[in-house]
């Protein structure tokens, strides 16, 4: 009855020029089914569009699906823009075909855990949930 808990808000986007957004849609639906409010912005999003939407929507988490190989450019760019817009607290996570050493390097740049293709969505969900319980006010 009381407004004690609120849903985690997540922006799911597919940056870059590559292909379809089936994977991102599956992730968006899975996060919704896990009780999250998912703002889905679709294909071909530039880092600027992603950061602007994330700030306007006051999301807690940004999830990016990047299959184009441009992850080393895109993830840090979104991080940088969010920091500039006053939201260094937003978790950036996501997935794609990303070599382990790239993942380490991205983590050092303030990106959260990244998931390889075919990872069950349950893993992403529990990662976001445990991050939220540590970082968000109740």
């Amino acid at each position: 009855m009381t407004a004690a808990s609120r849903p985690i808000r997540v922006l799911v986007a597919k940056p870059g020029l590559d292909g379809h957004d089936r994977g991102a849609k599956v992730v968006a639906a899975a996060l919704r089914d896990a009780g999250m409010e998912v703002v889905y912005t679709g294909l071909h999003q530039t880092p600027e569009m992603i950061a602007t939407a994330a700030v306007q929507e006051d999301v807690d988490v940004v999830g990016l699906s990047i299959l184009s190989g441009a992850h080393m450019a895109l993830f840090p760019r979104v991080r940088q823009m969010l920091d500039q817009m006053g939201r260094p607290d937003i978790l950036i996570t996501g997935g794609g075909i990303i070599p382990a050493e790239d993942m380490d390097q991205l983590q050092a740049l303030g990106i959260g855990r990244l998931f390889g293709p075919g990872t069950p969505t349950a893993e992403l969900i529990s990662y976001i949930q445990s991050w939220a319980s540590e970082h968000l006010e109740a």
Partner: peptide, 18 residues
Amino acid sequence: FTGGALLGDRIRMESVAL
């Protein structure tokens, strides 16, 4: 049932998003 929601209206508002 879950309290979750899929909010997809921004997809159609891309031209004014920035």
